[in-house]
């Protein structure tokens, strides 16, 4: 339809391809590093072809601290998502049905809360957790993750919920259903996809979260992003293991990300990663 000069088309192709290389090459480098021997890793010029070794992966998965961190990451991420859903779903249901300024103001407040830099929350949580003795507990970390997961889920579900025709819920109301019944029997079944998608995105953010995990855990509840930094601190030169652990952490995050990429636009509008 639109006439695009050849030079522009060429330029766009070139830019797109160069950017694809910029995205892929650094990660590929990390993947290669994870299957290189120490000697190959520091070879000059860099070796792109070599005999791969999976020793680093055996090292990482033979490390009980790392296995423990995998378990912790799963517990904290899943727990944080479930807690967040428990709060966010009724809230979004309320927002969907409320009229007037209360709706808009609530959405804005939720958005602003999410935009506050994570460091602002870190100090008070540390002081209070320290006093209450909830440092280094799964629940303590899940609670903090709700700060960014609840707004994320509300913001992602709001537009999806708006696309469900009101007639359906009105019909339930006329048939004498209470708001709770309407939510559980009418709205939730229609929202399954959206809820799953927002849960997955919230899971990714919890899985990736570093700052709170760094300060609010000690040893028992250390999650993967912190465990990997511990590799750096205690085994400074074991780049193979660091690379292997990195690849392992990225895997689920990116795989799940692909699943929900269609849904994530509005979710991302409410902010990307806390730090």
């Amino acid at each position: 339809m639109r006439v695009r000069p050849r030079s522009v088309t060429f330029g766009l192709y070139a830019f797109g391809l160069v950017w694809a290389i910029v995205i892929i090459a650094p990660f590929l480098w990390l993947v290669l590093l994870s299957i290189k021997t120490r000697l190959d890793a520091f070879a000059n010029p860099p070796k792109l072809f070599f005999t791969p070794t999976f020793e680093a992966y055996f090292g990482v998965f033979g490390d009980s601290a790392f296995l423990h961190a995998i378990k912790n990451s799963i517990i904290v991420s899943v727990g944080a998502v479930l807690l967040s859903l428990l709060v966010a779903i009724p809230a979004t249901y309320g927002l969907r049905n409320l009229r007037g300024p209360i709706r808009k103001n609530s959405l804005l407040a939720i958005l602003l809360i999410r935009m506050v830099p994570g460091m602002v929350y870190l100090l008070p949580y540390f002081v209070v957790y320290n006093r209450l003795g909830v440092l280094d507990t799964h629940f303590g970390l899940m609670l903090v993750h709700m700060i960014f997961n609840v707004p994320l889920i509300i913001w992602m579900l709001t537009p999806i919920w708006s696309s469900i025709p009101r007639e359906l819920t009105e019909a339930a109301k006329i048939d004498g259903a209470t708001p709770w019944e309407t939510l559980i029997l009418v709205d939730l079944p229609l929202l399954k996809g959206g809820i799953l998608a927002s849960s997955i995105l919230a899971f990714i953010f919890s899985w990736n979260e570093f700052l709170f995990a760094l300060i609010l855990t000690r040893s028992e509840v250390v999650t993967l992003p912190v465990a990997i930094v511990n590799f750096l601190a205690f085994e400074g030169t074991e780049w193979g293991k660091i690379a292997a652990a990195s690849v392992f952490i990225v895997g689920p995050a990116v795989a799940f990300g692909f699943l929900v990429r269609r849904y994530m636009i509005s979710g991302l509008a409410s902010g990307s990663v806390k730090g």
Binding site: I23, L30, I204, N208, P225, A243, I249, V250, L268
Partner: peptide, 26 residues
């Protein structure tokens, strides 16, 4: 270039800590 759309968004799901490690290595 349809496949590029999939590639372009990969960094959005990267744990920032891994981004840091990756670029530190590079």
């Amino acid at each position: 270039l349809g496949w590029l759309r999939v590639i372009f968004i990969v960094p959005m799901f990267f744990p920032p800590i891994v981004m840091g490690l990756m670029w530190k290595v590079l």
